[in-house]
């Protein structure tokens, strides 16, 4: 009995050694800072001194025009990028799921931008959209469409749409790859039945394809929403948050508040809690809603 028990603990110990290395780094460098951020959000920590001020940071946030604007922008980015990226990604997947000459080259081209850093691609688009020497205005001039020329990143509302465009451009291929995998799992014979019934193309998409790729849709929506709520790189390199603060997102504001404009670490932490809560709420709602839809289908 004694040896049995000892044996059992020895085995438990060995198994613990398997988890321990990964777990330790994960706990120390990811979970611990997350928990400390929760505490710091209740203080006015400026890097040196810190006093407990309760929920004052959160109160201040909702009277801070810049922060409210960054909430608004983040909402616009998240919703528009998710719609554009998934719409176009699904369209590309539907067109590229069949085998024809050149299909692999096309898939590679669509996916390619996703492998580069958002920062570097932001700089490249910054050049394309530059008003004086940039490529886009130059192309428009070449096509005699001078009337369409504009300062693409100088006007706040146009600049926000440019961020939506660049981000969707970069990650469209990623959604496409997931949709293609989903489409490849749809059984062929279902389409044959519907052909016999004389179903239209749209009808086939709405009643067969779309319900059956529900898992790909769910995962794409969730990854897209989480990713875009944290949108940072493209903003940093494309507009730097400007003109003024017009294109700032929550994530870029946290960076500015914490490391750029000063050291308001308590305030920045409070802001990061709000970002986390948004992500948490959104992913839980999306998972429950979309999974329920999957089951019903």
């Amino acid at each position: 009995m004694q040896t049995n028990l000892r044996q059992k603990w020895k085995i438990n110990g060995i198994w613990l050694l398997f988890v321990l290395p990964a777990l330790l780094f994960y706990l120390i460098f990811l979970l611990l800072p997350t928990l400390s951020a929760t505490y710091y959000s209740l203080t006015d920590w400026d890097g040196v001194t810190s006093t407990f001020i309760g929920l004052d940071n959160f109160r201040a946030m909702f009277q801070d025009r810049l922060i409210l604007a960054s909430f608004r922008n983040t909402l616009q980015y998240t919703v528009s990028i998710t719609i554009v990226q998934n719409g176009l990604g699904l369209l590309a997947a539907l067109l590229l799921v069949r085998a024809f000459r050149g299909v692999n080259a096309l898939r590679t081209m669509f996916f390619m931008p996703h492998i580069f850093s958002g920062l570097v691609m932001g700089y490249v688009w910054g050049f394309i959209l530059e008003p004086n020497i940039g490529a886009l205005n130059n192309v428009l001039e070449f096509l005699h469409l001078d009337a369409l020329k504009m300062s693409w990143l100088g006007d706040p509302s146009v600049a926000r749409w440019m961020i939506v465009f660049v981000s969707s451009w970069q990650n469209l291929g990623f959604s496409m790859v997931i949709y293609i995998a989903g489409l490849q799992g749809v059984p062929r014979d279902l389409y044959e039945y519907s052909d016999v019934e004389g179903a239209s193309r749209w009808r086939k998409f709405a009643s067969i394809t779309f319900p059956l790729i529900a898992p790909s849709f769910t995962i794409n929506m969730i990854l897209c929403l989480i990713g875009n709520l944290k949108l940072f790189d493209q903003i940093y390199s494309l507009t730097g948050g400007g003109p003024g603060f017009a294109t700032e997102s929550i994530a870029s504001t946290i960076y500015k508040v914490g490391f750029y404009n000063g050291i308001e670490w308590g305030y920045g932490s409070a802001l990061s809690i709000v970002l986390f809560l948004c992500i948490l709420l959104l992913s839980v709602t999306m998972v429950t809603l979309l999974r329920r839809r999957e089951v019903e289908m």
């Binding site: 990811l30 800072p33 951020a37 989480i226």
Partner: peptide, 12 residues
């Protein structure tokens, strides 16, 4: 950990 935004851990 997959839904923790890096911005949240950044300052601490």
């Amino acid at each position: 950990g997959m839904i923790i935004p890096f911005q949240m851990t950044m300052i601490p």
